[in-house]
Each structure stands twice: as C-alpha cells, then as structure tokens.
Design a protein around this nucleic acid. Sequence first.
DNA 1: TTGTAAGCGTTATCAC
DNA 2: GTGATAACGCTTACAA
Lengths: 340, 340
Amino acid sequence: MVTVPARRKRATIHDVAVEAGVSRGTVSRVVNDEPYVSAQARTAIEAAIEKVGYVPNNAARNLVMQRSQAVGFVVHEPHSLFLDDPNIGGILLGANTVLSRADYQMVSLVIDSQRDTDRVARYLSGGFVDGVIIVSARHEDPMIRVVEKLALPAAFVGHPPDLRRLPFVGIDNRRSARLITERLMQTGRERIGMIAAALDRDSGADRLAGFTDALGSRFDPNLVARVPLYTYSDGAEGMRALLAREPDLDGVFAASDAVAAGALEALRDAGRSVPGDIGVVGFDDSSWALRTQPHLSTVHQPAFGLGAAAAECVLGQLRGEDQPADGILLETPIVWRDSA
Amino acid sequence: MVTVPARRKRATIHDVAVEAGVSRGTVSRVVNDEPYVSAQARTAIEAAIEKVGYVPNNAARNLVMQRSQAVGFVVHEPHSLFLDDPNIGGILLGANTVLSRADYQMVSLVIDSQRDTDRVARYLSGGFVDGVIIVSARHEDPMIRVVEKLALPAAFVGHPPDLRRLPFVGIDNRRSARLITERLMQTGRERIGMIAAALDRDSGADRLAGFTDALGSRFDPNLVARVPLYTYSDGAEGMRALLAREPDLDGVFAASDAVAAGALEALRDAGRSVPGDIGVVGFDDSSWALRTQPHLSTVHQPAFGLGAAAAECVLGQLRGEDQPADGILLETPIVWRDSA
DNA sequence: TTGTAAGCGTTATCAC
DNA sequence: GTGATAACGCTTACAA
C-alpha cells in the first residue's frame, strides 16, 4: 500500500506582504494589477511573490467577489449520444477553450432523465455557476424556464422556437439544407429523397424545411423518411424505408453525417453503388464524413466555433455587455467530396 | 439588443437561523447533518431552509475547509485527438459521473504544447484542484514530476514505466493483446502481422509485446509495421506497408480499432476481402468497431469504467485511504464479430 | 444540545 | 500611494 503524503501549506497574501514589507492591500493591488502602486513597491512585491511562491486563493476571492468563476455546460442528451455525437465534443472543446482562457472553469452537466433536470436546475440556482451554456435544448425545454426565472447569463446552442429573447448561437440549418440540396440537384439527380431526423428539435425541423424549399414544386412527401435520432442505426433504418417506398431514388439528403453513414450501409446491403447509382449528402462534416466509403459530401458545421461563440456570449453578459437579440449565426461552407 | 437583468440575492445561513429562531452554528450542523441536534430544531431548520430557499455557498465552505472541491482531468493529447479518440470520451464521462455524484467538479485541462504543460503545472500547484486524473501520460511525462513534487492525490490512467509508486488504473494491454492474437491464430491463419502504434506509450509497447508473446517462436519482426499514432490514417498507412512487404499475409492485429478501420480501407483498396482473404482484429471496442464493414472483432476496453475507477481512486486518497501500490487492473473481454 | 466567536484569504472603502 | 479594517458566508472549537 501507498500512503498519501502530507501537503505543505500555501503562501498567502499576508506572507507576501510581510516579505515585501508592505500592507496586504498593496499586494492585492499589484496582484490584480491596479494603478496607484509605486514602481518601487511593485518590484518588491513581485520579487516577494516569486520568493514565497504565492498563488491567489480562488475560494477566498470568489467569496468576497460574490461569484463562482464557473460556467455550466448542460447537455440535454442521453449519455450514450454525448459520446457518439462528435458535434457535442467539438462544442464542448470550443467552449472550454474560451472559458479557460478567461480563467473560468467549465462544469459539464448532462441531463438524461427528469431527475437530472431537477438536479441541474437546483445546481444552477445554487450559485455554483455564474452563467450557463445549453446545448441541444428541445421545444418547451424545462431549461428555458429555469434560465429565465433565474435570470442567469446564458447562451443556447441552437434555438428552440419558444426561446423568446434568450441569447443563442447557431447556424442557419434551413438555408444550409437548401443549399446542399440544390447542389445535389445540380449533379443531375431526378428523384431526391431525405432522411429527416430529430424533428422535435429546431435543427431537425429546419433541415427538413430547407430540403422542401430547395425542391419547391417538385417536393414529394413520400420521399422523406422520418426517424427519431441523428444516429447511424436510424440512418440505415430510414434508408431502407425510403428504398422500399421509392426504388428509383437517385439522390438522398441525410439529416446528419451519422445518418448518412447508416444510409450508406443500407445502400451497400441493397447493392446500390454510391455515387454511381445514387448520390448521398450529409450534414455536419463530423469525423464520420471521412470514415465512410466513399467520403461524404456534406455541410460543414463549425462545432468548435459554436462552443467558442457561446462561451464568448455568456462571458460578454458577465461583463455586463448587451447581446444581439436575434442570436449569432455562424457560417457553414459546403464540403464536396465523393459521395455525390 | 437585450439587456442582462439583475439577479436577486441568495439566502445565507444567517437568514435560515433567524427564520428558525436558532443560531447559525446549529443550522450549519443540520446542513452537514452532524449529530447532536434536537429533532425539534432539525425540523424547524429544515422548514426554514425550504422557506427561504437556502443553498450553501461553496466558495465560503471551500475557503474555511481549505479545499476546492474540484479534481483536474488532464489529457496529454493533441486537441484533435481528444475528439477523435472515443476512449478518452468514455474515460472522461466515467470520471465525471463519479466525481459529480460526490459533489466534485471536474475541470478538464488539455495539454497540447510545452506552454500548456507549464500552464497546467501552475494550475495544479495553485490549489485549484484537490486531486488530479491524468490520461495518456507518456514515458518521462512532465506531469509525473509535477504530481510527485506537489504530493497531489492523483490517479493515472495507464502506467508509463517510470511512474514509480504513483497510483494508476489500467488494463493489462500485454495479456489482452496476447489473448486476441491467439484467438486469431485459432481461426487457422498462418501469416499474421501487426500494425503497432504509439510505441512511445505503455499501451502501444505492451500490445506489441503481447503480440510477440502469442507468436512465440513463429514471430517475425518483418511482419510488424510501426506507425506513430492510433489513427485511421496511420492504420491505412501501416497496412499498405505490411502488404508491400508481405503479400501473403492472412491475418492482422491492429493496435486499435481506428487503426483497424484504416487497415480495412487499405485492404479494400488492395482488393483483399475481409475476413475471406485476411482476418483483422482491433483493440478498444470503440464506436469504430461498428462503423466498419465488416464489424470488428476486438478487445473490449472499459473506458467508462477506467474513468470511474480513476475518480474513485483519487476520491479515496482525498478521504485519506491508502491505495494499492500496484495499481488497479480492469477486465477486457474479447468481442468476436465479423472481421476475423 | 446549543450559542458564541474566531478564523479562512481575499477585496474594497476609507482615512492618512 | 498606502495602510487599516470591515465585510464575504461558512465551519468549528469551546463555553454554556
């Protein structure tokens, strides 16, 4: 067995003050580099800090300043999807990068049940966080009410229709979906279907709307398969359904890359060649896109940028700055590869 | 523009004490449910807490108790791999789950450069965390020294050879690699190669050692391709090299599922059928395993469990319990699917 | 069983 | 420019 060794005590502002022969107030001033400190005192204090190895105590600082210096990152997804959805990983990383650069901690909270919702609501109201980033909120998501009631600085990634005037960052799912569908049409495809997923979320519904926009009068409701989730297996499922209904399909817009990958599998099983017999496009430009054969033509979703923008947004509110009421929309370039 | 609204003040222990007509000390006792509180006082206080909506202030508590109630999660990987490696996601989730159940925050720190190393070292010594979990440390990793010098409660996931007596959790890479290679041999393969990756890490080196163990006297160094990382592209690269050197190969052990997926691509390009012409096995049982065609036979790596065990380990140290000096090894069942 | 009071390490408001 | 000193909200001896 290995015994846990004792830790030695940390130096405080007091130690620095004694070492430098000044008062604690002055030390505090140089630590937070405020003006009105003589150059002489400043150098003495800096030397003292170095010598005693002083590092400010966050708890004390947070206590007196009435903040926690933490931002919540709540994900409303089943645990498993949290791993499976590469988008969430990117958003998380982007948010974490910005937050930690600003000396904020990110504490991630995943909601996977009603009990979790309550737990998270309690956590948010407990003052454990100064603000919150909320990913993949649904229509009538309880988090919306919680944030409103708490008047907590927040940024949503994606915008449920009932978000009212809460700040959000996102992409224009509808426009992006329209553009890639149009691009697919330009390759000469005649019968284009869609595997629509997650229609209970703004992203899912908007992608379907964009698809409809692109097709215009040529739109045929029989050509869209609806599946619950942005997953590989639902993609395969949806593709099989579509193929059964419309054997002469020659193009498919899948609501996400994972869905597209599943569709590719179903297509392979059905003996259809891609892009020979049928062109497939996805959405997200996630790591899926390069794991499939052929590589996916898709819409690039700036996951990292979304997380970063959301973090900037709550940081801005924390600084007391106003936020644009109509949200922040990021660019989504089309990435054309081999699947269509 | 939307203006950030004012927040209302939180209730303190004082408010509860006044409401319940007792002293703050007594309130504190019921909050931390200590003994020596009359049933009468307890109920009165609980009612008061409910009424004023009291939630303890962490900063104050941490200040007086001299702890941060946070555990660091440091990942020594390029940012991109952090996303790409599904293992790390699972470990993170496992650690986060047990940590948050124990009311600890997990603060994740990714090291991607020398500057990051310094930043993280400073962070760890700043008392911002009570303990630390370190993932994918390399041989002579600077974090080892940092943790030793700080005498910080820690748990490594994986064990670099120079870890000395620091606690770690892991799997028996060598034994698992030997077992799956033997399993592959039992399918009747004659010329079995390996794509070895990340040989600068214990996991990579041990998997190669296990492969060598299994082959025994039949081991031929010409049959192992060495690549730097556990990635798809390195897997494809390694497979091409192997094929060039040994066209009559009929079995391959890839050092990870991502590597195996890349190998599968190279094999497909070379017109070899799997498992017809050649059997392929991977390692990790990550989400890759079911994204390939055919699905991978592989070694299940308990990523979530590893993270959870690491968290338990540092939590144990925080409670002052001793830890097993020879580390904690988790089980790794073989999952046999279609690629061999 | 309960109340009192002394810190915990900062920041911030004053005088000086 | 600088130094006292009063908070911040909590835990924890110690006294009662």
